[in-house]
Design a binder for these strands. Structure first.
Lengths: 235, 235
DNA sequence: TTGTGTAAATGGTATGACCATTAGCTATTT
DNA sequence: AAATAGCTAATGGTCATACCATTTACACAA
């Protein structure tokens, strides 16, 4: 008789809270600079003690995602200020360029788009729609829609239902953000480019909604290639 | 009259405790692997509440200097363990399966194969040839050729000349070695599978040698799909 | 208008209790 | 004697409650 038993992995409550809040940040539901719900309200909403919530928040503070301000509240830090994640650090050492990053994203995200087309549920689509819409609003207001842009790609990552992919993209997130914001600002300056990107995102969403994996993959390919071409022209 | 007043810096008690314990570690009074005093004793010795001590310790845990073990105590982590790859840690927490891993590799490595076909030089090809040959020898000697297998995929990663891709693959295969070696062993047990894999690797190399990106991509795709199918059949 | 005081909101600390897990010892069984 | 089960103590994790410290906002008085 050969039975295989899986080892049980005990999960601390505070870590579950930690995950939940971190998700909110990555998905863009908690934007940079925004204030987190007070600890007392969080503990009530999540039905755990304030102690547990504090442990989770403290972890996020140490990791640089949140910031405590006594007497005021807890706030989401701006990604620019947190270049301490391992991937970003590696970028500094190896002299990785945006082109390198886009190349890897081409492989990762085209594949992800195909997977998402097979597995995305209603909620995933709502997140993607929301980020697209938010990006429209942001851009229309004269701002760069970088946060919404990032949120879109993270929403797509979650839609793959693949924890490994989600994990990698999470680590990409900070670098993505900084890279996009700093360098893509030029890309966003031209209204024509903005329209292009918006429609590209839209095409990706529609392909996923139709559950057409091939189409989704190609739409993503066009999107990333568009950005690549832009940088090639700029040198 | 010009007087200069220094702004007061409010210092949290927990941070003072944090500093003190960190000093102990840095000065070597708390050596790696050693057990920290229990929280209750620490709080008594330092005349602060256990809550405060816990906050300080938690900070050190998040920073990777200490390690919690419920029911046992808190220990000083070994420095080499501090640099362990983040991906392996994620695998523990998220319940990632081999299938998840292969899915992501499908995207990453197919893309990498195409890039390698465009950029691989003589040295890269020699490394890939060498790993292929080594795997043949290992297998012929009755051993599993997992290390040579890994070496092949790493050689391909380097051939892309893309530092971001190399970085990700490094972490990837650290994990593969640590956790998944035993699962892959079944795949290697059947000689027919080995021959398949060897010829698949060979096809990939040849496509790269011919600088045929499309061909390389498809060869890699067949290779990974073969492994995926194997695991699907095994359930 | 200006300054002052007060109240509310919010993070920080303190206690004390209890739960969950682990290691080690003890008693029981075989 | 050896193996197993059961118990106990140590230790980290969670909870509830109270109070302290800081900041902001607002009302009020000079």
């Amino acid at each position: 008789m050969t039975i295989t038993l899986q080892p049980i992995k005990p999960k601390k409550i505070s870590d579950q809270v930690f995950e939940q809040i971190r998700e909110l940040i990555f998905r863009g539901q908690l934007k940079a600079g925004e204030q987190l719900l007070p600890e007392r309200e969080l503990s009530e909403a999540m039905q755990v003690s304030r102690t547990t919530v504090r442990n989770a928040i403290n972890k996020l503070v140490v990791l640089g995602l949140l910031e405590h301000k006594q007497g005021q509240g807890t706030f989401v830090r701006f990604p620019d200020t947190r270049l301490d994640n391992p991937l970003a650090a590696a970028m500094e050492v190896e002299d990785a360029t945006i082109a390198d990053l886009l190349e890897v994203r081409m492989g990762l995200e085209c594949n992800a788009a195909a997977l998402a087309a097979q597995r995305a549920n209603e909620e995933d689509l709502r997140f993607m729609d929301a980020s697209l819409e938010e990006m429209r609003v942001e851009v229309a207001s004269g701002r760069l829609g970088t946060e919404a842009d990032t949120a879109f790609h993270m929403a797509l990552a979650y839609a793959t239902k693949n924890p490994v992919h989600v994990y990698i993209m999470k680590n990409f997130y900070d670098f993505l953000f900084v890279g996009i914001k700093k360098n893509l600002s030029h890309l966003y300056e031209d209204p024509a480019n903005i329209d292009q990107i918006l429609s590209q995102h839209s095409e990706i969403i529609e392909a996923i909604r139709k559950k057409d994996a091939q189409d989704a993959l190609q739409a993503m390919h066009r999107h990333i290639q568009f950005v690549q071409d832009f940088f090639r022209k700029r040198g």
